[in-house]
Design a protein around this nucleic acid. Structure first.
Length: 426
RNA sequence: GGAGGAAUGGCAGAGUGGUUGAAUGCACCGGUCUUGAAAACCGACGUACCGCAAGGUACCGGGGGUUCGAAUCCCUCUUCCUCCGCCA
C-alpha cells in the first residue's frame, strides 16, 4: 500500500510512475488526499472533545473527594453532553479511515525510475541476454511431456484421478529429481546467508492482505471456506509475514529467509498448447528467497538476489536470460521485477523460472514492518525471488539434456540425485 | 473434544475504578569515576495519530459494554499453559 505522504509530497513522480502501468491515477490520488484531509480534521475534533472529557473527569474525582457533590454533578452533565458528540464523530472517523484504506488498496506500487513503460510482455527489456548461440536439438527432439512418459518422470493422468487436471504426480526418478533440486536449492540459499524456514501452507486473511495477494489476486488463491484460510500461492506470503508488525533494530538487517513450499494457484481460464505438461500447473514446488532490507540498500540487495539466482542457473547449465519487466507486465505490488527465463530447446521458447522483485515499502506499509533509525522509525523494504521454481526447471533439464544416453544431469545435481543421468523406464 | 489457569513496555514482573503510559529489576543508550574495563553513581529510555510548536489523543492479547472516569468491573473472541480424552 502506498503512503499518503508519498502521494502528497511526490504527486508528479507517483503519477508519472503509475502511467508506466498505463494507469491514470490523478483522480484517485486526489480522492486519497481529500479523504486523508477529512480524516485529520475529524481526528483533531475528536481529540479535542476527548481532552475536555478527560480533564472534566479528573476534576469530578477531586470534587467528590472533597465532598462538593453539586459541582461534580454539574460537570457530569457536561461530560454527558460531550459524549453525545463523540459517538457520531467516532463513527465518521472510522468510516473515513476505511474509505481511505479502500481507495489506497486500489493503487498499485509505483514502478522504479528505471522500469520501462509498456503494455505487455513484449515491452519487457532484455536486461541480460543469453550469451552465445541458443542450443538446438535437431530432428527427433521431444518436448518434456513426451519425455516424462519415456522416463517415468511424472504422470498427469494419475493427477486427474486423484485430484483434477493441473496436478501432476511425480513418479520414481522424477520424484527423486524433485527432491534433489529442492535440497540443492536450499543448500545453496543457506550458504548464501538465507535462514531456512518451513512455514505453514495455509494462511489467514491478514497475512494474504499484507503481502498484497488480497484484494488484488483473490481469484488466484485456493480458499478453504470452512476455516477461512488460503492455500499459499508462493512461500513469499508466509515468509514475509513472519515479520509482520515487528520493529527491528538496524543491526539485525538485512534479514534473509529461504523456504521450500508447494505453491497452489488456481490459474483460472488458461488452457492450450502453452500450458501443456509442466508449463503451467495448479500445484508446484518452489524454493523462495526473501530479504528485509534498509531502504538505502534494497536495490543493492535486489542485484545480489539476481546474481544469486543467475548463479544457480549457471550451475544447472541451463541457457537463460534476464528480463526487466515493463510497467504493464509487472505485478501489482512490485516496484521493480526481474524475470528469469530458461530456454526450452524442444519447445523453442523461453520459460519463466524465477521472478525477483523489490517491493520497496508497498508490503511493509501493510505489514507494519519497521526498523529504528537515528531519525526515528522507518518502513523497511521487502524483496523476494524464486530460487527456484521446480516444474519448468525440470522441463528444461529434460528437454535440453536429452541424448541417446539418457537425460544427462548437470554435475551439481549428481550427488543430490545419486546418479549422473535419468534413464528410460520400461 | 472436556476441565481449569493465564495474556501488562525489549525481557522479567507489580498494579482490582480516579493525576498509572503504567512501580520495580534487568537489558540497552548517554555521562561521572578509572590508565582501560568492571563495579558504583547520575541521567535518558514504548508506539501510532493530530499539531509549526506548546501540547493533545489512543494503545496494558482483539472486539464490544458499564461508568463522569477502566490495565483494573461485565460480555465475547483469539492465543498460550496445565490436566484428561482422541490421534499422525
Amino acid at each position: 500500500m502506498l503512503l499518503v505522504s508519498t502521494l502528497r509530497d511526490e504527486r508528479q513522480r507517483v503519477l508519472a510512475g503509475l502511467n508506466k502501468r498505463n494507469l491514470d491515477a490523478a483522480e484517485s490520488v486526489d480522492r486519497v488526499v481529500a479523504l486523508d484531509d477529512r480524516r485529520k480534521e475529524l481526528q483533531s475534533r475528536l481529540d479535542n472533545l476527548l481532552a475536555e472529557r478527560n480533564s472534566l473527569s479528573k476534576s469530578i474525582g477531586e470534587l467528590f473527594k472533597s465532598g462538593r457533590k453539586d459541582e461534580a454533578n454539574e460537570k457530569r452533565q457536561r461530560v454527558n453532553e460531550i459524549k453525545e458528540q463523540t459517538g457520531p464523530l467516532e463513527e465518521e472517523l472510522e468510516q473515513a479511515v476505511s474509505q481511505l484504506e479502500e481507495e489506497l488498496l486500489q493503487l498499485p506500487n509505483v514502478p522504479h525510475e528505471r522500469v520501462p513503460a509498456g503494455r505487455s510482455a513484449e515491452d519487457n527489456e532484455v536486461y541480460r541476454a543469453h550469451e552465445g548461440e541458443l542450443p538446438t536439438l535437431g530432428e527427433g527432439a521431444h518436448p518434456h511431456w513426451e519425455l516424462a512418459t519415456t522416463y517415468g518422470i511424472f504422470d498427469l493422468e494419475l493427477g486427474v484421478r486423484t485430484t483434477g487436471s493441473g496436478f501432476p504426480v511425480f513418479t520414481g526418478q522424477g520424484a527423486r529429481l524433485q527432491r534433489a533440486l529442492v535440497n540443492y536449492f536450499l543448500d545453496r540459499n543457506s550458504s548464501a546467508g538465507y535462514t531456512e524456514y518451513a512455514p505453514p501452507l495455509l494462511v489467514n486473511e491478514d497475512t494474504a492482505r499484507a503481502t498484497g495477494q488480497l484484494p488484488d489476486k483473490e481469484g488466484q488463491m485456493y480458499y478453504v471456506s470452512a476455516d477461512d484460510l488460503y492455500l499459499i500461492p508462493t512461500a513469499e506470503v508466509p515468509l514475509t509475514n513472519l515479520y509482520r508488525g515487528e520493529l527491528l533494530d538496524a543491526d539485525q538487517l538485512p534479514i534473509r529467509l529461504t523456504g521450500y513450499t508447494p505453491c497452489f494457484r488456481r490459474e483460472a481460464g488458461s488452457y492450450g498448447a502453452h500450458v501443456r505438461g509442466l508449463n503451467r500447473v495448479h500445484q508446484f514446488d518452489k524454493v523462495e528467497i526473501v530479504q528485509l532490507a534498509r531502504p538505502e540498500e534494497s536495490y543493492t540487495k535486489l542485484d545480489e538476489m539476481v546474481e544469486h539466482v543467475a548463479g544457480l542457473l549457471k550451475e544447472l547449465q541451463l541457457p537463460f536470460r534476464i528480463l526487466r519487466l515493463c510497467g504493464g507486465d509487472m505485478g501489482f505490488t512490485s516496484a521493480m521485477t526481474y524475470d528469469f527465463e530458461v530456454w526450452s530447446a524442444a519447445q523453442e521458447r523461453w520459460l519463466e523460472v524465477s521472478s525477483v522483485s523489490n517491493f520497496e515499502t508497498y508490503q511493509s506499509n501493510r505489514l507494519k514492518l519497521r526498523y529504528r533509525t537515528e531519525r526515528g522509525t522507518e518502513l523497511l523494504h521487502t524483496l523476494n525471488g524464486s530460487a527456484l521454481a521446480l516444474p519448468r526447471i525440470i522441463a528444461a533439464l529434460l528437454e535440453n539434456n536429452q541424448s541417446a544416453d539418457g537425460i544427462l544431469l548437470p554435475e551439481v545435481l549428481h550427488g543430490y540425485f545419486g546418479k549422473d543421468r535419468l534413464t528410460p523406464v520400461g
